[in-house]
Structures are given as C-alpha cells and as structure tokens.
C-alpha cells in the first residue's frame, strides 16, 4: 500500500472505536430524540403528531415559567463575575497567606451540588442556623420559611450557585491576572499611571478573554447544570416555581407516564438554546482575539 494511504488508514482506524461508541451512545439517541419529538410516545409505541408537542410547549404557559427560572440564574452571572473579579484582584495583591485563602475558596467548587444543596437546605431550614443568625443580628424574626416561597427559594439556590462558583472564578481570573506581563505594569508606573488606571487600562482589558470564557461556561451551566442542585434543594417547587428546563425534562421523561414525546421536544429545544449560547461564545471569542 502507498505510504500516505497507509497512514490515513491508521488514522481512521484510530478514530473508529471512539466514533462507534459516540455513534451508539450520543449521535443515534440524539437523532432518536429529535424524531420522537414529533410523536406521542410512551416508550413502546410512537404516533406521529407533527409539531403538536412544540405547539403545546409554546402554548401551555409552562415554558415561560421554566425559561424565567433559567434566566434568573443567567441574570445572576454578572454578580458572581464581579465578585470573582474583586476576589481575584484582592488575592493578586499577595497579602500574607493569600495562597491559603486561594485554596480555601476552591473547596466549595469541588463538592457535589447535591452535597451543597442538601447542606444549605438544612442551614436554611426554619429552625436552621441562618434564621438564628438573622434573628440574632436583628434582621428578621427568625421564622422565614425559605423554601416555601419562590423568591426566597431562589435566594437559597442562587446562594448555592454563588458559593460553588466563587472559588472557580477567583482561580481562573487569578491565572488570567498572572498572565499579564509584569513589565506592562512597570512601564505604566513609570508613565505615572495610578492603581485604578492600571486596573482599568491594563488589567481589565487583558482579562477580557477570561471573562468571556467564565461567562459562557456559566451561561451554559445555567441551562444544563442545574439539575442536581434543584433536585437536592427544591425539587422544582413550590409548584413548578423553581423548575428549570433540564429538571422539567427529567420530570416529564421519568416521572410522568406517556410524556416521552413532550420530553423529547423539550430536549430538542434545550439543545437549540445551548447551541445558540455556544455559537455566541465562538463569535465573542473571535472578536476578542488579541
């Protein structure tokens, strides 16, 4: 065999196992989901009903509640972004013991959202430590039922989200800060630039790629990563008030008999949203390419 052909054959054969596996476990089932999103399906028999699942999604009102729930998380990203940036700038000052702080901050990030959720659920219980603390400092009467109303339930969920994301954010931005060449700061100092000027003119612009990365990965997380946290803390309640799309797919697929077609249509919708966010990422990171 010709040398080039032989090398190409080696290449294709190297890829074959991975592609066969992905074909069986990802590509085929994905196509299967798309097909079944146009059917009424109970797992055994599927009846073609065209776009009716999609029409139902857009007309039954549930979609707007779910999207609202995802968007609430999405809108909380600037807050955690800012917080992570501030913490990383503080760490970058390298006060005594900053390495210890950096390590401590990362611990919540490595825990399972399930552990974090159940732990916080206990701490935010009616007789829990959070209520006692708020009562002790005189902010509330200490009787708040955090999880029985949507706004406060969201506060608990967002607190978990922030608590877990801060360490990751601080670490990512810290390495972004370290990659700024030190002589840029020196040159700026010689030119008489103060701390704030250096922060806004040098530090922030060079962090833009990292900010884009952080924002997009967390935006995707807000659509596909909330399942475990919601499962642990609120189970989507009260009612459906804290149910994001991925949790709804789980409810429809595994807890409501005969709604697999509807769950499939929701899955396709979620996939489309994630594609959109990823596409935005590619566009944004191209624009900010140095």
């Amino acid at each position: 065999m010709h040398y080039r052909t032989k090398e190409a054959m080696t290449g294709y054969l190297s890829l074959l196992p991975a592609f066969l596996a992905l074909g069986a476990i990802v590509f085929y089932p994905m196509a299967n989901t798309i097909y079944h999103s146009f059917t009424k399906w109970n797992g055994a028999e599927a009846e073609w009903i065209g776009l009716r699942n999609y029409a139902f999604i857009f007309s039954n009102g549930e979609l707007w509640t779910m999207l609202r729930n995802n968007v609430i998380f999405l809108l909380s990203i600037p807050g955690i972004l800012l917080l992570s940036l501030v913490v990383s700038v503080l760490l970058f000052e390298e006060v005594r013991g900053w390495r210890v702080f950096r390590s401590l901050y990362y611990i919540p990030t490595i825990l399972s959202p399930v552990v974090v959720g159940l732990l916080m659920k206990m701490m935010f219980a009616q007789s829990g430590v959070v209520n006692r603390f708020l009562h002790a400092i005189g902010l509330t009467d200490g009787q708040t039922e955090w999880l029985s109303r949507a706004p406060t339930a969201f506060l608990v969920l967002l607190f978990c989200f922030y608590w877990q994301t801060l360490g990751q954010g601080a670490l990512i931005f810290l390495s972004g800060l370290s990659s700024v060449p030190p002589d840029m700061y020196e040159a700026a100092s010689i030119d008489g630039a103060g701390w704030w000027q250096r922060l806004l003119r040098i530090t922030m612009p060079s962090l833009v790629p990292t900010i884009v990365y952080f924002t997009v990965t967390n935006a995707i997380y807000c659509f596909i990563g909330l399942f475990s946290l919601v499962y642990a803390v609120t189970q989507g309640g009260p009612g459906r008030e804290t149910t994001p799309i991925d949790y709804m797919i789980y409810i429809k697929a595994f807890q409501s008999p005969g709604q697999l077609g509807y769950a499939s249509a929701l899955s396709v919708l979620l996939f489309a949203i994630v594609l959109l966010v990823s596409w935005a990422q590619i566009r944004l990171s191209n624009r900010f390419e140095p």
């Binding site: 190409a8 294709y12 890829l15 989901t33 596909i224 899955s267 396709v268 994630v274 990823s278």
Partner: peptide, 30 residues
C-alpha cells in the same frame, strides 16, 4: 497522523461536547 477530513472529524468531536446529556438519555435508557 495526517489523513483527509481530519479537521472536520475533529470539529465533530468538539461539537459533541455541547450536546447536553439530558437530551439523549431517554433513548439510551430504553
């Protein structure tokens, strides 16, 4: 290794990363 279509196959793999796990779990379960 160099072979035709390497870049497009690679992009296929990368694109697969964006597919949320929950969207294809039902057919796999069945």
């Amino acid at each position: 290794i160099r072979f035709p279509l390497r870049q497009s196959l690679y992009m296929t793999v990368i694109a697969t990363m964006t597919i949320p796990g929950i969207t294809f779990v039902v057919p796999n379960f069945l």
